[in-house]
């Protein structure tokens, strides 16, 4: 019968077990994954199984790395995500966290846009480092994502998004993420994208400042192809700053909404 071992199709005899396979091909492997799930017990193999054998701590070759990363993804899901393109408008607190989550999930292509540079006041919530102060955020993000998953293609735009350039820059996305800071910019992007790229879904965010209850942040449908994350009320203002936990909760609501849309599910 045929199975996939570390992403290569091989022929094995009927009756071969999981640990028998390990003994033959990689006896030193201490992590054994069958069909996207770690296996601790020996078990029979079935036609079409995907098996990955890993030595913990081993630095894999570039060719092996992607197969090993894919190993923890649910079978069937990875190919859909790998062929997907997601746009992210603004890569501050929301956008940088959405990008990290989607890169870890294996989304194939991210188009990211932001005019800003990394500055000290960003580090309380944004996915950047002290040694990146002064860099364009899209460049810093590209560096960081390459260290997480080098198989994600990043298209960085260091510019200010306007109602005029949004439809063109994001014409190829499957799903769009609004991750701006200013309320007027959020509204501008929603109108420009939904009007300029008809039929494509937008996941926006509003109301995530402070340290209010986590569960007040929700994902809801607010129009055709238009989803909104947040508590809709907690504005960033003097006395209510933006803090990593709630910004992260909202960002991951957005990332999961994107994931659900890419997989054909409704986000809310």
């Amino acid at each position: 019968m045929r199975i996939q071992l570390n992403e290569q199709w091989i022929e094995i005899e009927q009756g071969m077990t999981l640990f028998g396979l390990r003994q033959r091909f990689k006896p030193e492997a201490d992590v054994v994954i069958r069909n996207g799930f770690p296996a601790n017990n020996d078990q029979a193999l079935a036609e079409g199984d995907g098996i990955v054998l890993i030595c913990r701590g081993e630095q894999p070759s570039a060719a092996e790395l992607e197969a090993l990363m894919v190993a923890r993804h649910t079978p069937g899901v990875h190919q859909k995500l790998k062929s997907a393109t997601v746009g992210i408008a603004g890569v501050g607190g929301l956008g940088s966290a959405v990008a990290v989550a989607l890169a870890r999930t294996g989304v194939g292509r991210l188009i990211v846009a932001d005019f800003d540079l990394v500055e000290p006041s960003n580090l309380n919530r944004q996915q950047y480092f002290v040694d990146q102060l002064g860099l364009p955020k899209v460049s810093a993000l590209q560096q960081n994502l390459a260290r997480i998953n080098p198989y994600v293609q990043i298209v960085p735009w260091h510019l200010r998004l306007t109602a005029g350039n949004i439809p063109e820059l994001f014409a190829e996305v499957d799903v769009m993420v609004e991750a701006f800071d200013g309320a007027d910019q959020k509204a501008m992007l929603a109108a420009a994208f939904l009007g300029g790229c008809p039929g494509k879904p937008l996941v926006a965010a509003s109301g995530l400042a402070g340290f209010g209850p986590s569960n007040s942040i929700t994902t809801r449908a607010v129009g055709r192809n238009f989803y909104l994350v947040g508590d809709l009320e907690s504005a960033a203002r003097p006395g209510e700053g933006l803090m990593a936990p709630r910004v992260g909760i909202a960002a991951h609501h957005q990332a999961n909404a994107v994931l659900r849309l890419l997989l054909g599910e409704t986000p809310a």
Binding site: G92, G93, A183, A204, S206, G207, F226, A235, A236, L242
Partner: peptide, 10 residues
């Protein structure tokens, strides 16, 4: 009409 109001923060 559907009216979506935004507040700042991101």
């Amino acid at each position: 009409l559907e009216i979506v109001q935004f507040v700042g923060g991101g």
